[in-house]
Design a protein around this nucleic acid. Structure first.
Length: 222
DNA sequence: CACCAGGCAAGTA
DNA sequence: TACTTGCATGGT
């Protein structure tokens, strides 16, 4: 259907259904970076409360966060869940930026993509999705962010193998799509939106999913 | 009530 | 290497 590649067609359908998402939901680089850690395996609504706490306390900037005691930081981020772990992960990230980029977040974000990514991944508590979210949404680097929804939606529709790991999925997306930062930005956001509304763990392939009937693979099972 | 959420690391065999 | 478990609040 529609001669061009399936991934572009999926993007077109999702964009038509949901419209532009305008991610990331946050204004500054530090806010995006913090949000990327806080949202790990957690509903964004909970993350928003944590961000509001940090803003209300006036500590949502690099040096305030660096100096803030971990126990206090943990209290602020408590609504996002795993609050002790996440407070430590934030501290680990801040320390890496202090040590490698002279405490300047903009220098991390302006670094070469590969080196910035390596440094992010060296932080305990930052894995590929968190690193790539920071690179794309805070730094504007052309890396496609993969998440649980990406895997679930695309494997259920028979577009990628069920056993694909993070890196192989990222390779597929980046090779099938034009290297366009705005496209990467919107597409991942649209995938998350689709997952939230139509592709939960249980309740596979529901009726009003914008991708329903996308290919013949659809609908043979639930 | 059970289940899940925009992961990641550590433990086990 | 390939599973499993801990981390935790809040919404549906």
């Amino acid at each position: 259907m529609g001669g061009c590649n399936a991934f572009i067609e999926v993007y077109a359908r999702l964009f038509e259904h949901f419209g532009a998402q305008g991610w990331w939901p946050g204004e500054t680089a530090i806010e995006i970076m913090v949000g990327a850690i806080l949202t790990q395996n957690t509903n964004w609504g909970n993350v928003r409360k944590a961000i509001i706490n940090l803003k209300a306390a006036g500590v949502l900037d690099f040096h305030s966060l660096l100096e803030l005691p971990s126990e206090i930081l943990a209290e602020y981020v408590r609504p996002s869940g795993y609050y002790n772990i996440k407070a430590r992960r934030l501290k680990n990230l801040l320390a890496m930026i202090r040590d490698n980029y002279d405490g300047n977040l903009d220098r991390l974000l302006a670094d070469q993509t590969a080196r910035a990514r390596r440094n992010l991944l060296s932080v305990q508590g930052i894995g590929p999705e968190t690193a790539d979210s920071i690179l794309l949404y805070a730094g504007g680097h052309p890396v496609f962010v993969i998440d649980a929804y990406t895997h679930r939606i695309f494997s259920r529709h028979g577009l990628v193998a069920e056993e694909s790991d993070y890196h192989s999925l990222q390779e597929v997306f980046e090779s099938r799509l034009p290297r366009d930062i705005d496209l990467y930005n919107e597409f991942h956001a649209l995938i998350v939106m689709t997952g939230k509304h139509f592709c939960k763990k249980t309740s596979p392939l529901c009726d009003r999913c914008p991708l329903r009937g996308f290919n013949s693979f659809d609908g043979d099972d639930t």
